[in-house]
Design a protein around this nucleic acid. Structure first.
Lengths: 344, 344
DNA sequence: CTGTTAGCGCGTTCAA
DNA sequence: TTGAACGCGCTAACAG
């Protein structure tokens, strides 16, 4: 199994110089006579030599790698966010470890430990435990231990009792915009569908929804506020339940676009037209929202800014610069064709 | 910037043993007296010590990391494949670098070099240059240089003049199944839409399509075989062009599900019903295919098997075991509601 | 401008 | 069963 690696010593010998000089041309940190340089460069190219960054990292105590922890790369929200973030990380010289936990706490711990051992310079936490409204003590403890050594940025999440740097979407104002929109379209009977109680984004959105409805002087019908997940399938289920009700809302806000898609699918299937019979809006603006008929009105997550900011904050922490404790990224309303003016 | 890391020396000192003994309990490679062991374990836990895997890797000449090179994690085909592969890699003890090239050759070279320097044990190439039907010489050379040091597995791709291990979907038989299906449904006027000439999967599919049509004694109308990409938008464009034609096909096979979605969107928009007026089938079976109305009949890529096999082959190469030069993963036809019997 | 040397943290000899 | 010492590949510090 032992591969005979080429090292700077091999290069040095062949070029009749010392290893240090080879190192100098590699890093460019010190002056080398052009003639010597050329000789060395030639040998390097001859052997197609590449410096071992493991050795370098060991010395410098920094690996120029970061880790992304997230539940599922196969979800468009995460894949988009990872794509944007990773691209920016690359610009700053960082290579990214992908840690797909598949919602398993076990995997999450395993990965966390692996990232520590692999000496990543920082961790971007996109989802998992940080999405629980209430954090289990043992997870908080584990997190704190990691954070003693490695800078961590939470994106759209938090942990009770853990004082981490946070970059988050302004979900409150996003929901406010949606309620505002529907109210302006004359809707009074509005529901909120999808999500899971105890997951912070659901709780934040639900609370904001209720608050906004009250502000507008509208009643919240408890029968119209429920959910059991974030997937298309869960959207289908809640919509099916909605159909059983005697009185139905004229408009529903969904916790995310996936749920909205599921809702639209089922409503359509049972002969209710969107937006003619029911208005439906989503959240996230995944690329699908544009394409799924009739085109879903939603709130954009501002993936570029969110990802870039997260990486910038992390880089600041890594380099011991000051960084905002919490950065809130604004959202924008994306108008499409899934809701319409209620006229009667 | 220098973090004072805890090392086995610190642990050794505190436990009154030698570093070597600490190392032994860490690896479990040698017997340690239970009493000594306990003392050491206590100290390790007290300081929450984790061994530095960089140092370990340097010594062992293997990093237990692999790299994934792909064009865009935000495409469901890749995100699904990465998700499955990465999960299996984790089971085998490998952590994954994500290298999202965004179709930039520059990034591709940059990443390739970075992976070499980072001493990854292997590389899974999911897309990029390996998708060109004809390989540019300089890319082939670059690839060969990498492969002298690091095992590489190509998934659904190849490089002219590069003798790599390949794991690929049986695209030929997938297309055959689709043609077969449509012919059985009485369709004779069948088109093939989407893709880009020179990209191998497009070429393979187109060729197979033509061959199958000939086998069935059907003419291929050149006006119905074209494409300009793999995205939903490109599907919209080709469908728009289709509408201009005097004579239109009664069924179209799309290079992938995204294109199929775009095609369905535009046809629907212009009043043609799918499948009543036109039958449309896709390829890949991305999760969306099931949900996009009317539900797209397609060919499943067998993501689990594809990902798992790729990782297994790579692991075999890493451990210098024998591995199949080329593994072909079968597909399966997924029947949904986007095509129907042509009756007249 | 260039060479020598030490040490990053670990695991593996070889002795004891 | 345990310890001492070396080396993985590299760069920084110090000489020259």
């Amino acid at each position: 199994m032992k591969k005979e690696n080429i090292t700077i010593y091999d290069i040095a010998k062949e070029a009749n110089v010392s290893p240090a000089t080879v190192s100098r041309v590699l890093t460019g940190n010190a002056k080398v006579r052009p003639q010597t340089m050329r000789k060395i460069v030639d040998v390097i190219e001859k052997y197609n030599f590449r410096p071992n960054s493991l050795a370098r990292s060991l010395l410098h105590k920094q690996s120029k790698t970061i880790g992304f922890i997230l539940p599922d790369i196969n979800h468009p929200f995460f894949s988009t966010l990872v794509q944007k973030s990773e691209a920016h990380a690359l610009e700053l010289g960082y290579t990214s470890f992908l840690c797909n936990t598949m919602n398993s706490s076990e995997n999450e711990s395993k990965y966390l430990q692996s990232l520590v051992e692999k000496q990543v310079d920082g961790i971007i936490y996109l989802g998992g435990r940080i999405n629980d409204t209430d954090t289990e003590q043992k997870y908080a403890d584990e997190m704190k231990k990691v954070m003693e050594r490695i800078p961590v940025v939470f994106v759209n999440g938090q942990m009770t009792g853990v004082d981490a740097h946070i970059v988050r979407t302004d979900e409150e104002s996003g929901i406010e915009k949606l309620v505002e929109l529907l109210v302006n379209l004359n809707h009074k009977k509005i529901g909120f569908l999808g999500g899971i109680e105890g997951i912070s984004s659901t709780d934040v959105k639900t609370n904001t929804f209720v608050k906004m409805m009250n502000n507008k002087g509208l009643d919240v019908n408890k029968d119209w506020v429920f959910g059991n997940g974030f997937s298309i399938e869960s959207g289908e289920e809640v919509a099916a339940q909605l159909l059983y009700l005697k009185e139905r809302p004229t408009a529903v806000i969904c916790v995310n676009d996936f749920v909205a898609i599921g809702v639209i699918k089922v409503l359509t299937k049972f002969g209710l037209k969107v937006p003619d019979d029911v208005s439906v809006v989503g959240f996230d603006d995944i690329y699908l929202a544009e394409h799924f008929p009739p085109g879903i009105t939603t709130v954009s997550q501002n993936y570029d800014l969110l990802g870039e900011t997260a990486i910038n904050v992390l880089a600041d922490l890594i380099n011991e610069r000051d960084a905002e404790r919490e950065t809130v990224v604004p959202t924008s309303l994306i108008l499409r064709d899934s809701c319409k003016l209620l006229s009667e």
